[in-house]
């Protein structure tokens, strides 16, 4: 029997409990998979929850089209090894179909556009639950999120009308058009995630490890220089050693300077980190104090 530290074992047991409750209570669950560490962890726990049976949950990536190629390669290899098929809901497709208008300019990010693509996909596939890798330690709006959260037919999240969540007795009932978002790893912190990945020897995309990259320094953040990033006047790319703490849309996910080439190194840096994951790495959250909450209301994860 593997020795997982007590606190990680409890978090693992809780996540498995939530996954099983949800799948047993609803008909068409989907797991949102971006190949970021939180979705990899959620996927890993979902497989454990139903082993040795096949995963009774569909897996879907909401693809903004602004990807790190390493992450897409990882995504495909990882799911192939797990023998799990992948659905892709494409933001580019939504733009082509005129469901949303693309955003342009140096600070443009497709993060906000994802909501429409995601909701269209949920409707088209008749999913009634979407599992996400959201964690309560990510920011202050998330700190108030339920483990099981109801979204209306517009996918909106109304902070005022969330159901009270008592004990671990989840109300999974839905009215027509509604769906659930369920967050099995709600109670993991960033450090817990890395400790768990370390203990379980889970693979993550290479961009989580320190590597040399061309970046643009903007608003105190390091953004990957690439075809999708429009420069502001005076911005000059620099080459430096960085790693990413989150994986998202390539245009607004910031890197941090790092020399951590192993999980142990990442753990050390996480323990001594002085800036939150989101603070360091999400350009689009900096625009307004309530940015995250606004996006959640619109149906973003």
């Amino acid at each position: 029997m593997s020795r997982l530290p007590g606190h990680l074992a409890s978090l693992e047991d809780e996540a498995i409990f939530v996954l099983r409750e949800t799948v047993a209570s609803r008909e068409r669950p989907v797991l949102l998979f971006s190949a970021g560490k939180d979705s990899i962890l959620t996927f890993h726990l979902a497989r454990k929850a139903f082993a040795p049976a096949r995963l009774p949950i569909a897996v879907m990536h909401v693809d903004t089209g602004h990807n790190f190629p390493e992450v897409i390669a990882f995504r495909d290899a990882y799911l192939k090894a797990a023998d799990v098929p992948l659905l892709v809901a494409s933001v580019e497709e939504s733009i082509r179909k005129g469901r949303v208008a693309d955003v342009t300019g140096p600070r443009a990010s497709r993060n906000a556009l994802q909501s429409v693509t995601l909701l269209d996909a949920i409707r088209d596939h008749k999913f009634d639950v979407a599992f996400g890798g959201g964690r309560r330690d990510e920011d202050r709006a998330r700190a108030k999120e339920r483990i099981v959260s109801v979204r209306d037919d517009l996918g909106q999240w109304d902070p005022k009308s969330q159901r009270p969540e008592l004990w671990d007795v989840f109300n999974m009932r839905l009215r027509g058009g509604e769906h659930l978002r369920v967050f099995p790893i709600s109670n993991f912190t960033e450090l817990d995630v890395w400790e768990y990945i370390h203990a379980e020897k889970i693979d993550v995309p290479s961009i989580y490890y320190a590597h040399t990259r061309e970046v643009i320094e903007r608003d105190g953040m390091l953004l990957a220089n690439g075809p999708h990033l429009t420069h502001l006047a005076g911005e000059r790319p620099i080459i430096t050693r960085v790693r990413f703490r989150t994986v998202g849309d390539a245009t607004c996910t910031g890197a941090v300077r790092s020399d951590a080439t192993t999980i142990e190194g990442i753990l050390e840096e996480t323990i001594s980190a002085t800036v939150t994951e989101r603070g360091a790495t999400r350009a689009d959250d900096k625009f307004s104090e309530a940015a995250m909450e606004d996006r959640k209301r619109e149906g973003y994860f």
Binding site: A143, K144, S186, N187
Partner: peptide
């Protein structure tokens, strides 16, 4: 510890917030 916008506007906390 003041999370949601409505709370900030009213200057009070209106939902359970989880912290670690």
């Amino acid at each position: 510890t003041d999370g949601l916008r409505a709370e900030r506007e009213q200057g009070i906390t209106i939902d359970v917030a989880w912290r670690y």
